[in-house]
Design a binder for these strands. Structure first.
Lengths: 369, 369
DNA sequence: CTGAAAGCGCTTACAG
DNA sequence: CTGAAAGCGCTTACAG
């Protein structure tokens, strides 16, 4: 999105009168209620009433207008309506990208909820460093609320939330903790990892390879926190029980990243027996890499993914994973957001937590093979 | 999206004055250039000039305005700008859904191209039967062009294209042939299937199971056309060489659909030796189903997917597939669309064809195992 | 740089 | 139902 200094969209070209040649004669496209009213033979006021479904109109009049709309294809100018208007019924959705399947799933679900609640979604993808312009664009479009989906630079997002708060625009941050004063809905990843570790320890595992998982972000609700907590519970010393090779490789394509991490792990003499991956893609890549090294899954190595995508049921072996409960996340997210609209700003940030669910499959349980 | 009879968005509530309590005193959010100009101590005209980056302004003045914008968070009302304005620099993108990975990839690529060209994308997902309202919404937002991505009911789409043509709004249909008077960019699926069949015949296959592929749609550029053409070329009688069990099962989840089709095929005594799937998901499900029945891939059965998603390199065996050339598709699509803006309407529909690329992997070539 | 003014396309009382 | 009018928040000549 390109914006002028004002945060608004640039104009592309002078508005040529929109005409269209039809069968040798030029038909002017009707672009205003004034013109349209003249065409129908009614007053502008009356047309406006019909368009807005106001009461006290004869069925005949409504019909006349409807028919004329079909004939001419006239649509009232939304910009004029909303200028005059009482709210835009629009919600801005800021996406980190459109390439993460689970993020897109959330977007799709959210858009559906908003539509049901009679809101239009204004969907934008954040360009690196473009968050200020993006929020200015949303504000200039007078959105009634803003949702953030995905992962953003903490400082930038913090700034943007402050701006939204300053303009009394409601917001919710989906799945991104650690933003001061932000209302958010977050998956309790820590809890998910506790379930995973419990399950793996139960299967006899004592050493864990971490694929793409680190403590950098997240804090209390983060995965690392959960892993440490669970290991402690089982009396396993953290430093000896876990191993990461993330420093060796660059993460571009997740599948490939998982594969190459696994290949490196396969060369270790004291190789961990269980692997926890940041997501399903990395886990699938890791299975590929481990198997290519001649290892059996789960016999020689157990693997756990994250997100429980449909593909998990179709790999060989099928992949144990953690379900994000996207439906629930979006339900709560929408509730938090819509609850703010029309209300006075909250003093305290709202923080809602979603509990994930472990789905055990063959990659960690030999009995299921 | 909910629309009133006028095709516009309903109003949600009366616009309460947006105020915000900050440190005990109530700060009014500035919502107009008039207010803002008063705040800065400049004329509205001057402020407007600064916001639009017009020449002939002192650096000092520009600075003052910039600073005041940062202080107040003021954003000019986009609805007023565009009402007055010369074009909206907005393009409507109509998606069939947000759940098909390749469709979302196209969306992401297209949005990026549009942004680079200084257009904002208005992304909407079509609800069943909601196409008329959707297009009315786009027209009411005065989009400068419309893109359709995905598959739509032919008759509905034909109607919508006619409406867009009637209002002189440019459009392009990505990957959906057979719409009269529609400008479109389409993958030559027939060509793709010719390549597949050539490859498989080369590998010694003479019988082909079709998974989800039928002749219902598409015509000349369709897959079935390509399959028939290639079989004829190799002197293989079509009816004897192909087999479909699509009538036996319901297609909901594609992975599962592929699995269950394959399970049925596995029970046949005269089972085909090669399988062509509608997409990668069905192909992966089919591999799962065939392997579960004890068959070796590609030894007992070859499998080919469609779309060449990243996962194809991570299955066991890796999956031969056809790459859609999404980058090229979107490049051409944007070219076709942007080329129409500001030009007189075309008499003849534009039809551009994209050539797919066969990517051979282990699932069809034992030498790669 | 300022200020007054017209106009974009609507909605909404208001008087008939 | 009609008609005249005010106003939403901008932009853009125009005269100073």
């Amino acid at each position: 999105m390109h914006l002028t200094p004002s945060g608004c969209l640039p104009t592309k070209h002078a508005a040529a009168p929109r005409t269209l040649a039809v069968k040798k004669k030029t038909v002017r496209v009707i672009t205003s209620t004034a013109e349209f009213a003249r065409y129908v033979g009614l007053a502008r006021t009356t047309v406006s009433r019909v368009l807005n479904g106001q009461p006290g109109l004869k069925a005949k009049t409504i019909d006349r207008v409807q028919r004329a709309m079909d004939e001419t294809g006239f649509t009232p100018n939304a910009y004029a309506i909303r200028l005059k208007g009482k709210g835009t019924a629009t919600i801005g959705i800021c996406m980190e990208d459109l390439l993460t399947p689970t993020a897109v799933k959330k977007l799709a679900a959210l858009q559906r909820v908003f539509r049901t609640a009679h809101y239009t979604s204004l969907i934008e993808v954040l360009e690196p460093g473009g968050s200020r312009q993006l929020i200015r664009h949303f504000l200039s479009m007078r959105v009634e609320a803003v949702v953030f989906i995905g992962h953003f630079p903490v400082e930038e997002l913090t700034q943007r939330i402050a701006e939204l708060n300053a303009s009394a625009t409601p917001h919710v941050v989906i799945d991104h903790v650690g933003i001061p004063n932000a209302h958010s809905v977050t998956l309790d990843r820590a809890h998910g990892m506790v379930d995973v570790v419990d399950h793996l320890v139960d299967q006899g595992h004592r050493t864990f390879g971490l694929l793409g998982i680190s403590a950098r972000l997240h804090g209390r609700l983060g995965r690392m926190h959960g892993i440490m907590q669970a290991l402690e519970k089982h009396g396993l010393p953290f430093a000896q029980s876990t191993r990461s090779l993330d420093h060796l490789h660059v993460r571009e394509n997740d599948f490939e990243y998982g594969r190459i991490l696994a290949a490196s792990f396969a060369t270790l003499k004291d190789r961990p027996t269980a692997f926890l991956a940041l997501n399903d893609e990395i886990a699938i890549g890791a299975m590929h890499g481990l198997q290519a090294a001649g290892l059996d899954i789960p016999g020689d190595a157990a693997v756990v993914g994250f997100n429980n995508q449909e593909i998990c049921a179709m790999t060989r072996p099928t992949l144990t994973s953690i379900d994000q409960q996207i439906g629930e996340t979006i339900r709560v997210g929408a509730e938090v957001l819509l609850g703010q609209i029309g209300q006075p700003p909250r003093a305290k940030p709202i923080l809602r937590t979603i509990e994930p669910r472990l789905i055990v499959r063959q990659s960690t349980d030999p009995k299921l093979a």
